[in-house]
Design a protein around this nucleic acid. Structure first.
Lengths: 270, 270
DNA sequence: GCAAAAGTGTTTAGCTTACACCCATGA
DNA sequence: TCATGGGTGTAAGCTAAACACTTTTGC
């Protein structure tokens, strides 16, 4: 049987009519890729790892890996996230403090030829995490880092300032990253997801700087304060206050239970 | 080499460090499943096909099929849509009249065991179409039909009125359908997607009945009219009017170029 | 004329914005 | 006392909800 004939069977396969035949479909490799976003020094940053092998050797890429034969997609994504960052995936039904992150499916990328070695379908996931001290990646500290998305998405594939490393991402990861950033930008409008970028306790000012970094705009601190504290379920005061260097101490808050914001936060016009 | 050892290799595979080894990943079948929605007789309906084979023999299922070895995911979805309905996928960059539909990726479902025969990852797509005369499915007119989503999503798996057919969907298709319906419900709030349910020329009243059917609410016709005609880019008058049986003739409109509505349509509180 | 659906005008309430102003702390 | 960021008050302008009212057709 030629390879072509195998594929013909797959083409004509109809799951309503045909019995199961393991040779009747083309095999795919399935991976999960992660868009892990955080806010560092007032900039939206993504986790990238350096590729040590061809193709795209030396380029930055999104972290990811193969889905195991017996695990579901979200488990695979949570496992990769944990392996790359030490973060545990956050269960939205039981909000818990600690080293957790928001994790959701982003989209699936399966163009033939997106990986020159074989047919790979990648189920991309989006993870949002508070600022972490430093990424760890299998002991090789230099092979993983946070990079501002603005740099990574520079379409001309420019070089980072100090280093001579091209920032153009491997495979179709620039498109995946762009989709993830757009998802995050729109989703913090109508959901409480922005709190996933904050530590368990945070101030209104810290939350505002998250919005400003993700949207790339400046927001009026007075109106922002009134808005977020007035949106039911968004924030609950934790009782404490911060000590600051210059400036009145700020109230500390935790994320309220609400997942959807009503009314939504309004992103200023561009 | 045992199967277990093959899977261990996949577990430990790291795309940054390892060369390509075709035996180093578990093979998956990849399919596309379609949530095709339309509005018929004031109800939101989905296209379902009858399964002729085990598992879930006799049950309704979403249309779908295997992705070919050389086609990308969206092409596979458009091909399945065309095969099941005769609809061509609508290219959002070149809005054209005719027998087209909106098509977008919905999400990917890959739990082990979702198909008892093998490991299948399904990339679900959402299609929105105007009301069609009747579904066609490979000549067997009885094997495909429109069914109200309200009936299909009845969790207790009730029976349709006239027939003795259980309406509980096969596989995890109830969850996929529910996700597709929720996507459609939320997306017509802030995009012009509701026009995808309408023929090329339509009245404000027809568009309002789309919103009412998808959301399952009653809307004030006067405020709705002012709102949609006042939203820039949503509708453009085509010049004609309708003849009605009782009632003032209505202006005809086409979909304007805008994809995102500003201000958005507001879904009434539940 | 009457029913029915299309469209317009008007009022009221709520929300956003812009910005004046006050508060609490460290230096 | 001053700089700095936190937080409140308030008036103008916009939007949406409710609903009275007019328009245009078929019967």
């Amino acid at each position: 049987m030629t390879e072509r004939s195998v594929y013909r069977q797959a083409d004509d396969y109809d799951r309503r009519m045909s019995p199961y035949d393991p040779s009747a479909f083309p095999p795919f490799a399935v991976t999960v890729d992660l868009v892990v976003l955080t806010v560092r020094r007032h900039a939206l940053c993504a986790l990238v790892v350096r590729r040590g092998e061809s193709p795209f050797q030396g380029r930055w890429a999104l972290p990811g890996g193969f889905v195991r034969g017996d695990e579901d997609l979200e488990t695979a994504a949570a496992r990769e996230l944990s392996e790359e960052t030490g973060l545990g995936a956050h269960d939205p039904l039981s909000p818990m403090p600690g080293n957790t992150a928001h994790l959701e499916q982003l989209g699936t990328y399966g163009d033939p030829g997106r990986d020159p070695r074989m047919r790979v379908v990648s189920v991309a996931h989006l993870a949002l995490s508070p600022d972490l001290p430093a990424p760890r990646a299998g002991g090789d500290a230099n092979s993983a880092r946070w990079a501002p998305v603005e740099v990574l998405l520079n379409k001309d594939g420019g070089f980072a300032r100090e280093e001579e490393q091209p920032t153009q991402l491997a495979f179709d990861h620039a498109r995946i990253l762009a989709d993830g950033v757009e998802r995050a930008r729109s989703k913090i409008e109508y959901s409480s997801l922005a709190t996933a970028f904050c530590p368990p306790e945070f101030t209104v000012g810290e939350l505002r700087r998250v919005y400003e970094a993700v949207w790339g705009v400046a927001l009026d601190p007075r109106n922002f304060h009134r808005k977020v504290t007035g949106t039911p379920g968004f924030l609950v005061p934790s009782g404490g206050t911060t000590t600051r260097q210059g400036g009145r101490p700020a109230q500390l808050f935790r994320a309220g239970g609400a997942n959807v914001l009503n009314p939504p936060m309004l992103r200023p016009e561009v």
